[in-house]
């Protein structure tokens, strides 16, 4: 199990990770999501002891990473794809790690085969494609046959076949009881593979939830109605206790969003009034949209000032998920 307690990282006045507490349980695949610059890599680096927390602590099985008796057998880490000496061969790259971590030599060939790099073992890393480098990173993480895996954007740069392979590998590893913690900035990457997700934005926790809870949240829908007489329509609907708001993206003000009535209910109300209606539709929130909503206030380069909202799913997850 990986846990962070009030983990905080400040660089001067900038707080990159802000009071972050979460748990990554054993035997699960936990997606670590957030927009670029949200603080995912910094958090992972603090778990691995590469960056020192300004406050708080990160623990693996109750211990700091550096205090683990056999770190490589407990945590396999894949960091940025560039963090490899380009002139080493794949074999040499794994050989020094195996030697330093006191692992059997046989593991080198095993993980090279497991990651499909058997034939590229003698090639220099600088001749590798991005996808091959990612596979080598995964091979490196698997070298110690660890109980926990921390993988920073492992799917980046993989071709579709590679993505399928990686997903099935992660599932297999989790089924064996390992803790798999994967960062990504794309929900679509995690949607089919993760059991749980942790979403952060601007270094703060937005959601810690099971994937099932997030799907539940995404299943919510609303009704969109467009009328040339929106004021009349609002009055009519509000008389029927509808929760109506104007769509802020429509400058004409003709588009209304009704949260608590279905399209059929809105149609039945309007049909007797004689009000013109140009468009009426039931809109289903997609999982991607739910994620975008959750992280809307946490984009690194967004200029508007508002805190990441704590959506209802976060509350649900913390109490029940």
């Amino acid at each position: 199990m990986i846990q962070t307690h009030h983990l905080t990282k400040r660089y001067g006045d900038a707080t990159v990770v802000d009071d972050l507490s979460f748990t990554v349980p054993n035997g699960s695949i936990t997606g670590f999501l957030g927009p670029n610059g949200a603080g995912k890599s910094t958090t992972m680096r603090m778990i691995l002891g590469l960056d020192r927390p300004s406050d708080g602590v990160a623990l693996v099985d109750g211990e700091k990473f550096a205090d683990l008796p056999a770190p490589s057998r407990t945590v396999g880490a894949m960091l940025e794809s560039g963090s490899r000496q380009p002139r080493l061969t794949a074999c040499a790259y794994l050989a020094w790690q195996a030697r330093a971590a006191r692992l059997p030599k046989s593991r080198i060939d095993e993980v090279l085969e497991q990651t499909g790099l058997g034939e590229a073992a003698r090639k220099q890393v600088r001749d590798f494609s991005l996808g091959m480098r990612q596979r080598l990173g995964i091979a490196s993480a698997l070298l110690g046959d660890p109980t926990h895996l921390i993988l920073d954007e492992p799917i980046n740069g993989l071709d579709p076949q590679g993505v399928m392979w990686a997903r099935s590998l992660f599932k297999e590893l989790a089924n064996e009881g390992r803790t798999v913690f994967i960062s990504s900035h794309l929900l679509s990457e995690m949607e089919t593979v993760a059991d749980r997700i942790i979403v952060i934005g601007r270094g703060r926790l937005i959601v810690e939830s099971t994937m099932a809870d997030l799907h539940q949240h995404a299943r919510s829908s609303h009704t969109v109605a467009v009328s040339p007489e929106p004021d009349e329509l609002v009055r009519l609907l509000e008389r029927s206790d509808a929760s109506v708001e104007r769509d802020s993206t429509d400058d004409s003000g003709r588009t209304l969003i009704i949260r608590n009535f279905s399209a059929a209910q809105v149609g039945e109300i309007v049909v007797g009034s004689g009000l013109p209606l140009h468009h009426l539709a039931q809109v289903q929130t997609t999982l991607e949209q739910a994620f975008m909503d959750l992280t809307a206030g946490a984009l690194e380069y967004e200029g508007t000032e508002h805190d990441p909202m704590l959506a209802s799913v976060a509350t649900t997850a913390r109490t029940g998920g």
Binding site: L48, L50, P71, L79, E80
Partner: peptide, 11 residues
């Protein structure tokens, strides 16, 4: 950037 991997192996 190899220092990251070195310290992940030898923290």
């Amino acid at each position: 950037g190899m220092i990251q991997q070195s310290l992940a192996v030898t923290p």
